[in-house]
């Protein structure tokens, strides 16, 4: 597990926090943060957590597992519903967050910090994250549009 300092700024969009220092998978609401050469930390954003409900259990693929973008990185259970944690990048699982495995609530309490899920080693960070939403301005615009869309569809409360 990498020992990096968790210092980042959170913006708030319509009541939901969003960290603007990282990239996001627009479909699955997973974030990706470079933490070293060829190494990316992965987690779920606040909107993904909100739509999951109260988390009961998490499981993650073991270190050394190769994942393609879109494949399950693990599974999450909320309200007796087990769904995939989708890997936002292609690479090899290099670390998993034991703390979040022991206490899934950490993901709800601190989705951008202590509630990170795994670290993935990739061949090329730029290539691996090319399809993600980048940049503070773009991230905020995308996140705001997602919140508005989810509210329109009744996915989240007004």
């Amino acid at each position: 597990m990498s020992d990096i300092e968790q210092v980042f700024e959170l913006a708030h969009v319509a009541g939901f926090p969003v960290a603007t220092d990282r990239s996001y998978d627009a479909e699955t609401h997973f974030w990706v943060l470079p933490i070293g050469p060829g190494r990316l930390r992965v987690g779920m954003d606040a909107l993904g957590v909100e739509t999951s409900g109260t988390l009961a259990q998490l499981s993650l693929e073991p270190v050394g597992t190769k994942r393609d973008r879109g494949e399950p990185l693990g599974r999450v259970e909320a309200a007796k519903f087990v769904g995939p944690l989708t890997c936002p990048v292609s690479g090899v699982v290099a670390a998993v967050n034991d703390a979040v495995l022991a206490d899934a609530g950490l993901l709800e309490r601190d989705p951008y910090g202590a509630g990170w899920l795994a670290e993935v080693e990739v061949d090329d960070v730029e290539d691996a994250t090319a399809e993600l939403v980048h940049g503070a301005h773009e991230v905020l615009a995308w996140f705001a549009a997602q919140v508005a869309d989810y509210r329109l569809k009744g996915v989240i409360a007004e």
Binding site: T51, G53, A79, F81, G83, Y150, G154, V155
Partner: peptide, 9 residues
């Protein structure tokens, strides 16, 4: 299926 697990259930 709705994206919200609660709503889906």
């Amino acid at each position: 299926v709705p994206a919200s697990r609660h709503r889906a259930l």
